[in-house]
Design a protein around this nucleic acid. Structure first.
Lengths: 212, 212
DNA sequence: ATCCGGTGTTACCGATCGGTAACGTTCCGG
DNA sequence: CCGGAACGTTACCGATCGGTAACACCGGAT
């Protein structure tokens, strides 16, 4: 494992800026994203956090619990971003959908070759009774419900169909970051969602993949 | 590991119907799909194939090579399915796209809760220099190029954008099988692609998520 | 001065993993 | 009948994994 040997350079100050728990979670976030959950051991996480395995196990009862805490942070962060957008565009479901697509397009550029952390975690957690897996499933259902409601409020004649289209576009774009040009994907995601939402009320105005 | 104890019931005949190599690949396919590549050991694969580790290593130099052979089979099978559809609808790119979406919708129903094997494998193979990973990347690029060309021939004014939309819908639908109703996803995927292709030439005839 | 909670350090455990050696068996073609 | 390739069986190896025990350390509150 060559990636575990690089020390965390700047934090050699006697009193660490963050608590060990936060550093461990940050290191786990970094390593889980880059190498996958099963591809990284607890020792490497602790070392990357500038601490050791013992301290890690004083904050997390097991690796599974660390995974769960990490996933909990992922979904909390994502849902918080949703809430921010909702607060910024109250009573404008179309704008919320559009802004969400823009936020995702921006994120796409950042995930370097590795795809969405949530999608990857889902792939690495097949056991449906794993607590982290449950968090992910519940999160996805919440998000899908939220989108469906938004599509209904936005006036789509078939909100469930529109919600699935929206969700497919989002998740599909994320899935494609693993092997395609990142910038183009983001731009196209934005254009597709714009076009989708733009023709929500006034039907029959759009040729797909053609507009503008 | 409770899932490894169930014996392969019917094949107790002295001369096995398939060669050990094929049985190993079949067992690997089953276990990799259900538990992930990293979640299953070579011993379990051999046992599930009705043979043992030694024989496995007489056919595959390493687990990585077994993974690569499995992935090679996955992409070969998928591209063969493409070729069949192309042969059935020559000079009709729109029908090819539609049929491909129907084929995928049918597959969606079969992947029980676990998502697309290719997507999951991609998530479990972060190292870009892994031979199996390379096969997957090349496959995706080939498929995307093929779809782009099809969209061009189908008369979409912006073939690259249309191809991304098509690809997003496909991959997004697969990604959603991990936590949502399978049948509805397939139906919606078909309707969305039908609508997309239906309005390829005659622009300005579709309200998204509304038609039919 | 004392105590104590959080931390670092080292060593260790059992289990599992990928992979190999050595030997026995079976079967099939010459 | 014989030889050899393919397969089965057992045992084993070193490495790594998740997880724990025991002890030393340090800082801050009382």
């Amino acid at each position: 494992m060559y990636w575990g040997t690089g020390w965390r350079v700047p934090d050699v100050t006697p009193t660490r800026p963050e608590s060990p728990r936060e550093r461990i979670l940050a290191a786990a976030d970094d390593l889980f994203r880059r190498h996958g959950i099963r591809g990284v051991g607890v020792e490497a996480i602790a070392a990357d956090a500038g601490t050791n395995k013992m301290t890690l196990y004083r904050h997390f009862a097991s690796k599974d619990e660390l995974i769960t805490a990490w996933v909990r942070g992922l979904v909390a962060q994502k849902e918080a971003a949703w809430d921010v957008i909702v607060a910024k565009h109250p009573d404008d479901p179309g704008a919320q959908l559009v802004q969400w697509s823009r936020r995702n397009a921006k994120q796409l550029a950042q995930m370097e070759g590795r795809g969405s952390a949530i999608q990857n975690a889902l792939a690495e957690l097949p056991e449906t009774d794993h607590p982290a897996r449950r968090l992910l499933d519940e999160h996805r259902r919440r998000e899908h419900r939220r989108i469906t409601e938004l599509c209904r409020e936005a006036g789509f004649p078939e909100p469930e169909l529109a919600a699935d289209e929206f969700y497919f576009l989002l998740e599909g774009a994320k899935s494609c970051t693993q092997c395609m040009g990142l910038r183009r994907i983001g731009e196209h995601l934005i254009r597709l969602v714009d076009s989708m939402v733009g023709s929500a009320g006034k039907r029959g105005t759009r040729a797909p993949a053609a507009r503008r």
